[in-house]
Amino acid sequence: MNEFLGFLLSGVTVGFIYALVGIGFTVIYNSSGIINFSQGEFVMAGGMSTVFLLKAGLPLGVSFILAIMITSMIGIVLYKLISFSKESSQISLIILTLGFAIFLRGLAEVVFDKELHTMPSFVGDSSFDMFGTTLTYQSILIMIVSIVIVTLLYFFFKKTKTGQAMMAASINVDAARLMGINIKKILMINFALSAAIAAIGGVLLTPITSTNYEVGIMLGLKGFAAAIIGGLSNPFGAVAGGLVLGILESLIAGYISSEYKDAVAFVALLAILFFMPGGIFGNTKAQRV
């Protein structure tokens, strides 16, 4: 039982990170219809920047904030690149974001290095016992921060004017434009927001798993799986998707095979695509012929 609870809790911890990456996907997809394959690299950028700012002697808090700002800027750069593109066919935009991901990986190699890095936790490396299992403070922090972010996002989309404008733009771009909403600005905010959320995930994760320039590839794909499981267009679905993935992964690694841990996300992804194409919370839209 205690073992089970341990797996469950570590699953939830990682699940929240997947959720943060997944939210990033949905935020951009909702507003622009683009699948951003550099989402995982945003996570990497957040973690790596913090590590190196710390090494440069800046305090933890400052490094953290700066890293998020840097990553948001990277998000805005991606948006600018996309808006420069002459054609907006899905496939060429997918390739553009893939190219950007490769570019960011290359940039990280040059600006930082190829080594594996870790950083101290915000709350120390200590742990405590609860329900007969060990829990680190960092895990608690990840859970709390993720829940806070999700709550803030919820209020942002429901209560603030900008958030509502963003929702409106995701439902019908043309109508939103006619209502005087500045779509370009909205899109830019979305890219920055999505990058910032991913960066926070990167910073939170680094003390647990450490980071390097390549860490974004798998994280991005798993975050994407989380987003799909949640229905792709629903940020809160992505949270559920991330948690489901994290828990499944942890349980399978614990009880069945740790080697196939990484496959879990993709098996789940396929199961959802084949049997519930709208995601667990999504709805299928009727098409007009």
């Binding site: 690149l81 054609e87 060429s92 390739i95 553009l96 490769i102 990986r105 290359g106």
Partner: peptide, 21 residues
């Protein structure tokens, strides 16, 4: 050497922006 990935990514971005077809 170290700039290989960076240049590779840049070229893909460049092509997709200026000749998406």
């Amino acid at each position: 050497e170290d700039y290989q990935t960076l240049i590779y990514g840049s070229i893909i971005i460049f092509v997709m922006i200026f000749m998406p077809k």
